[in-house]
């Protein structure tokens, strides 16, 4: 088992965008099972009007995908962790395809992400899998393509005004 402290040694994501809580099983280069507990205490729920029904409390679809992709990121980076986005090799998502949302996910649900590594090239990794709540598939991921790139490629694209801000 890898706890959240271990996950933070691998991923650069932090609150409120660290969306993996625990890794239950990891076979390097092959597969991973991780979980994320959804709670109404996340900042996205702040502006929800009083009287919203259950459906309106559904966890944002794109964050289900982000959480799954972060789990894939743990698998991709396990052998070469780099929790700093400003140096070395960073993970970039090049593309996502065939993602199907089957059921809404609500506060109190625990997402269990199943990530399988399909193919690995020199600097590109392809994943597939699904996410389940209480054994029921809520999300299918057909393909996620992740590329490892030098951090300088990303920092070079940043507009000048923001570069000043990070000094």
């Amino acid at each position: 088992m890898i706890t959240v402290a271990g996950i933070k040694r691998v991923l650069p994501h932090r609150y409120p965008m660290l969306l993996v809580d625990r890794v239950d099983d990891l076979v390097p280069g092959e597969r991973l099972t991780a979980r994320k507990a959804v709670t109404a205490n996340e900042p996205w729920y702040q502006d929800l009007p009083e009287g919203a029904d259950d459906r309106e409390h559904a966890y944002p679809s794109v964050l289900l995908v982000e959480s799954w992709c972060q789990a894939a990121g743990v698998l991709a980076a396990w052998d070469l962790p780099n929790p700093d986005v400003l140096t070395g090799q960073v993970m970039l998502f090049g593309g996502i395809a065939d993602v199907v949302f089957h059921h809404p996910v609500l506060p109190g649900d625990v997402l269990v992400h199943h990530v399988r590594l399909v193919r690995s090239f020199s600097d590109t990794v392809i994943f597939e899998g699904e996410a389940a709540v209480d054994g029921r598939t809520v999300l299918e991921i057909g393909r996620v393509v992740m590329a490892m790139r030098p951090a300088t490629e990303l920092t070079a694209e940043q507009p000048a005004v923001s570069t000043k801000e990070i000094g």
Partner: peptide, 8 residues
């Protein structure tokens, strides 16, 4: 703030 600290 979390994506990413020091490099939004």
């Amino acid at each position: 703030p979390g994506h990413y600290p020091g490099f939004p």
